[in-house]
Write a protein that binds this DNA or RNA. Structure first.
Length: 614
DNA sequence: GCAAGGTC
């Protein structure tokens, strides 16, 4: 039997070929540079295998000719207009290869990633192959890691494609298109005639880009409306004299900050009036740890990378993609922060021993310093955490910095938690409680390679329970609450991830979109980059908020509902048709309201455009 | 001239 295997991307087709063929395969070029067809025999199932791949989705969705042009219809009609799908122009070569190979095979085995998108891509592949060869038998290989035993098991026990998952993705795709196009055309056409600033531009709406914008505006509004508040606290310290110097040991008041001066003052007066010694009531000494970092996911790479390396999330992902293409990194789009129990850490660590900067650390891991990485809570069943797959010695600039970060993070995660010794001292003075804590770092462990983490040890003098002393300072001091900071890109990535806006592969794109559209402007303050909404961005979000929907078009709830609906379609508790109809009805209602209230929206915009200055 | 999701 001839079996055609189709993976989601070139790297997977190569890995499964290497595993299933045991290295004995021939390779054919196709008309597409990055797609190869691999042939070999698989005696385990007495079949001859051809392994090839696609590159993500093959199909694009758009409106039929009657509704494609902007002026062809009222934007409202897009909620019902016919939506067609077609092979994207840049995927034609891949389609041709699939057709040619499907004609030669009796069985199609789909090897896409084991997630909803993978199931949908699998359905696209099946559709094209069936058209070329109507009798081809369609199977699906299920694997959760590129590990020999799992890949063999998947090849020998294929299952059926999960059409429910594929349908859920299709429903979301069509809904996003209808909603995005309808609101984008309506907004753009309405604003272009009335607002000078947007005469030439597209004012896009999207179910991911708007909540993303919403986060930026919401933080900006918090900053603008911030009013500092005064608070009072008791500052308490003692002088510690050692042979060399005198140091001030500061204690923290257990009550923290009080916002009523009268109350704080009364307590303070009471403390002073007792005119007593301070008494050490308790000394706690215990070992403490600073945990080594978790295995690296895409979202975490973008968050910590943008914070520590000061690069835009999109830039980091682009660099990681390039390093992956060059064979230096594992697949850079992953939600997984746990390694497979059979993962081969040692050979990867060995590759890093030649490095001039962290080679010695890698060697120390080989000589007994290795500890299995911590396990996070996420597993996408498709890719391992991001890790270096080869040593790269000749990189420069940002590529070098990104590679270095990923490698140090990997080595750190294979090391040991840092170990410290913490002392906490509780003190009673004038009836009030204070405490101070000190830390001595005993073993740096992972900190030696993960230069991005700090763990400072402040040493405390040796206090004894029952010890009495006079404070050197005991004052009532005033402080003020400080303004919240504007959002950084790292914050925004975190908010989007937490609220389910976008995916690991698209979060950075959505941020770029709101920058490109001019909804948000990057503002540098020193080394730090902050995101500030433009008048247009504020106008759009505040304008829609003004309309008063149950669930705002610029908040994350709507996307969460879409996600919930997709899960229901996957579980079979809702049909694709119901998800589509309900979604269309819901957004139709909001569309009508939005259009009717547009004067109100515009007046908010005009107000903001006139009175907001930066 | 519209979306979001894959990936190159």
């Amino acid at each position: 039997m001839r079996v055609l295997c189709v993976a989601e991307k070139p790297s997977i087709s190569k890995s499964i070929t290497q595993i299933l063929s045991g290295g004995q395969f021939t390779s054919r070029n196709t008309s597409v540079n990055y797609v190869k067809n691999y042939d070999f025999n698989y005696p385990q199932t007495r079949a001859s295998f051809t392994v090839t791949c696609v590159a993500g989705h093959l199909l694009n969705y758009d409106f039929a000719d009657t509704h494609r042009k902007w002026n062809s219809c009222d934007p409202f009609a897009l909620f019902e207009a016919q939506v067609i799908s077609y092979v994207a122009p840049d995927k034609k070569g891949i389609e041709r290869n699939l057709i040619a190979e499907a004609k030669k095979a009796q069985q199609l085995m789909i090897w896409t990633d084991c997630d909803r998108e993978g199931e949908n891509i699998g359905a696209e592949i099946a559709r094209i192959c069936r058209k070329a060869n109507p009798t081809i038998q369609v199977k699906r290989a299920r694997f959760s890691a590129i590990i020999a035993q799992q890949i063999h098991n998947a090849a020998q026990h294929p299952v059926q494609l999960d059409m429910a998952q594929a349908s859920a993705v299709e429903a979301r795709t069509v809904l996003d298109l209808r909603i995005g196009a309808a609101f984008t055309r309506m907004q753009t056409l309405a604003l272009q005639t009335r607002v000078e600033q947007v005469k030439e531009s597209v004012v896009s709406y999207g179910p991911c880009q708007f909540p993303t914008l919403g986060f930026v505006v919401s933080r900006y509004n918090q900053v603008q409306s911030f009013v500092p508040e005064s608070f009072w606290y008791i500052y308490f310290a003692m002088d510690h004299r050692s042979s060399k110097k005198t140091e001030e040991v500061q204690f923290t008041w257990k009550r923290g900050h009080l916002f009523e001066f009268e109350v704080a003052y009364a307590i303070y007066e009471d403390v002073l009036s007792q005119n007593s010694d301070a008494v050490v009531t308790k000394v706690t000494k215990k070992e403490t740890k600073k945990w080594k970092p978790l295995p690296l996911t895409t979202v975490e790479l973008q968050k910590s990378g943008s914070r520590l390396l000061r690069l835009a999330p999109k830039k980091i992902l682009d660099i990681a993609e390039k390093l992956y293409q060059q064979g230096f990194l594992s697949y850079p789009r992953t939600e997984t922060d746990q390694y497979d129990p059979q993962f081969d850490f040692m050979s990867l660590i060995d590759k890093q021993t030649q490095d001039t900067n962290w080679g010695a650390f890698a060697q120390s891991l080989q000589q007994g310093g290795f500890f299995t990485p911590r396990r996070g809570k996420n597993n996408d069943q498709a890719h391992p955490p991001i890790h270096p797959t080869a040593h790269a010695g000749n990189l420069v600039g940002d590529e070098k910095r990104v590679y270095e970060f990923i490698t140090r993070r990997f080595l750190a995660s294979c090391s040991k938690d840092a170990l410290g010794f913490m002392t906490t001292v509780d003190v009673l003075y004038g009836g009030e409680e204070f405490h101070a804590s000190g830390l001595i770092v005993l073993e740096r462990n992972y900190l030696d390679v993960y230069v991005y983490d700090n763990w400072y040890g402040k040493e405390l003098p040796d206090f004894q329970e029952g010890q009495r002393f006079r404070p050197s300072v005991c004052e009532l001091r005033e402080g003020q609450t400080s303004k919240p900071a504007l959002l950084t890109e790292a914050d925004l990535v975190g908010l989007m991830d937490k609220n389910g806006i976008g995916t690991d592969a698209t979060i950075a794109q959505h941020i770029d979109t709101i920058l490109d559209r001019g909804y948000v402007i990057a503002r540098m303050e020193g080394q730090m980059k902050y995101l500030v909404p433009s008048t247009l961005g504020i106008g759009l979000v505040d304008g829609y908020n003004e309309i008063g929907f149950d669930r705002s078009l610029s908040k994350p709830q709507l996307r969460r509902e879409t996600e919930r609906n997709m899960v229901q379609v996957c579980q079979g508790t809702k049909t694709k048709a119901d998800m589509l109809t309900e979604g269309v009805e819901q957004y139709k209602e909001m569309f009508v309201k939005a259009k009717r209230d547009f004067d109100k929206v515009i007046s908010v915009w005009t107000f903001i455009l006139e009175f907001t200055k930066y």
